[in-house]
C-alpha cells in the first residue's frame, strides 16, 4: 500500500493529487480543482474544471458569477467517482451549507481532506460524517485549549437578553456573509425571534441562495432601506469590517456585537471595538478537533493551517503522527469567517 505522501503532495498551487490529476482547494487557477466549500480562501476563481457539492456550486455562482470557472460538476453525497486512477467521494463537513470532506482512495490507501469543519449541530449545514482513513487532513484554526465554544443557543440567548435590556438600540452583529450569517438567522428563528432581520447589502444575495437551496430564513430586509425607527430594537447583520465603521452610523445607537470563535479571547474582542462578543464558530474547537482525530482513527494527521503546533503536540502524545502542511493562503479570512 503506497504511503499517501507518495501520491498527495503540497505544491505552490496547493494540495496536488498526482494519480488523480487534480488539486484540492488550490490557491491559484488550475486545470482541475476539487473544492471543499465556497469560502473565498478555499474557492478561488479561474479553474478550468471544478468538482464540488451541488450546494457549493450554487453558492460559488452567487459569489463569483457564472463565468468564474470553465466547467462545473456537482457530485452527490457519498457518490463514488473515478478520476484517472483515484476513487473520490464527498462526505459532509458541517462547516457551512455544501461544505464537504473529500475522501480519496488509491491502491488501497485512503486520505480524507476535511477542508474546514465543525462537529456541533448546525441547522444550515449537513452534519460532519467521520470517515476512517490512513491520513486525515485537518484544519487547526482553533487548535488551542483556550478555544472551547459554548453551546450556540446560549450565545443567542445572551444576544436576545441584550436586545431586551436595550430596547431602543439596534444590535449590529458582525458575521461573515457566507455561512455564519445564515446560521445566526436560523439560530435566532429557533430561539423564537420572528421579527424581520436586517441585512447589510453584502449578505443579501447569499441569503437568497440559501433560501433557494431549501434553508428557510424568514423575513429578511435590507438595512439600507430601513427607516431609522425600524432599526431601534432591531437585529442587523453585517460583515465584521462594517460593524464599527462608517456604514454602522445609520443605526440607532448600536450595540456592536460580533459572532466568531475568536470572541472567546477578550483581547480579540476589544481590538474590534466589540461590545457584545458572541462565541459562535463554524470551525471545530479544541475538544472537537481532538475528538475527531480519535474518531477517524488515522495513524497520521496532516494540518493545513492554523495553530498546528498545539494540535500536533497533543496528537503526538496519543501516538498520532502529525505533520504541518503550512498551506499559506488558507485562513486569510479567519478573523471574519471563523
Amino acid at each position: 500500500m503506497p504511503h499517501p505522501e507518495t501520491w498527495l503532495r503540497v505544491t505552490p498551487a496547493g494540495l496536488w493529487c498526482e494519480p488523480g490529476g487534480f488539486f484540492i482547494d488550490p490557491l491559484r487557477a488550475v486545470d482541475r480543482a476539487v473544492i471543499t466549500h465556497a469560502h473565498s480562501d478555499h474557492a478561488r476563481p479561474g479553474h478550468r474544471a471544478v468538482l464540488a457539492s451541488a450546494e457549493t456550486i450554487a453558492l460559488l455562482r452567487t459569489r463569483l458569477g457564472a463565468g468564474a470557472f470553465g466547467t462545473t460538476m456537482a457530485l452527490g453525497w457519498g457518490e463514488r467517482l473515478r478520476l484517472d486512477e483515484v476513487t473520490l467521494w464527498l462526505e459532509p463537513a458541517g462547516h457551512v451549507l455544501g461544505a464537504a470532506q473529500v475522501a480519496l482512495q488509491w491502491r488501497g490507501s485512503r486520505v480524507v481532506v476535511s477542508g474546514d469543519y465543525k462537529r456541533v449541530a448546525d441547522p444550515t449545514a449537513r452534519g460532519f460524517v467521520p470517515v476512517a482513513c490512513d491520513v486525515f487532513v485537518t484544519e487547526a484554526t482553533f487548535a488551542l485549549p483556550v478555544f472551547r465554544h459554548p453551546p450556540p443557543a446560549q450565545e443567542i440567548a445572551r444576544l436576545l437578553d441584550s436586545v431586551a435590556l436595550f430596547p431602543g438600540r439596534s444590535h449590529v452583529v458582525g458575521c461573515y456573509a457566507l455561512g455564519k450569517c445564515q446560521r445566526l438567522i436560523a439560530l435566532l428563528r429557533a430561539a423564537g425571534w420572528d421579527r424581520p432581520i436586517w441585512l447589510h447589502g453584502a449578505h443579501v444575495a447569499l441569503c437568497e441562495t440559501y433560501a433557494a437551496l431549501g434553508v428557510p430564513l424568514g423575513d429578511l430586509r435590507p438595512a439600507t432601506q430601513a427607516a431609522a425607527s425600524d432599526l431601534a430594537g432591531a437585529i442587523v447583520l453585517a460583515p465584521p469590517s462594517a460593524i464599527a465603521d462608517r456604514w454602522a452610523r445609520r443605526l440607532a445607537d448600536p450595540v456592536v456585537c460580533a459572532a466568531s470563535g475568536w470572541m472567546r479571547v477578550r483581547g480579540r474582542a476589544r481590538q474590534g471595538g466589540v461590545e457584545l462578543p458572541l462565541v459562535i464558530s463554524d470551525h471545530a474547537d479544541w475538544d472537537e478537533l481532538n475528538a475527531t482525530l480519535d474518531e477517524v482513527g488515522a495513524p497520521e494527521v496532516w494540518v493545513t493551517h492554523g495553530r498546528e503546533e498545539a494540535l500536533i503536540h497533543a496528537a503526538g502524545k496519543r501516538g498520532i503522527t502529525g505533520r504541518a502542511l503550512r498551506l499559506l493562503g488558507y485562513g486569510d479570512e479567519d478573523a471574519a469567517a471563523a
Binding site: L144, P145, V146, V265, R266, G267, R307, E309, A310, H313, A314, K317
Partner: peptide
C-alpha cells in the same frame, strides 16, 4: 500540559484569562 499551557498563555497574554 506545560507546552499547551505555554502556547495558550502566549496567545491570550493574561494569566487569569
Amino acid at each position: 500540559d506545560p507546552e499547551l499551557f505555554a502556547l495558550s498563555y502566549d496567545y491570550v497574554g493574561d494569566l487569569a484569562e
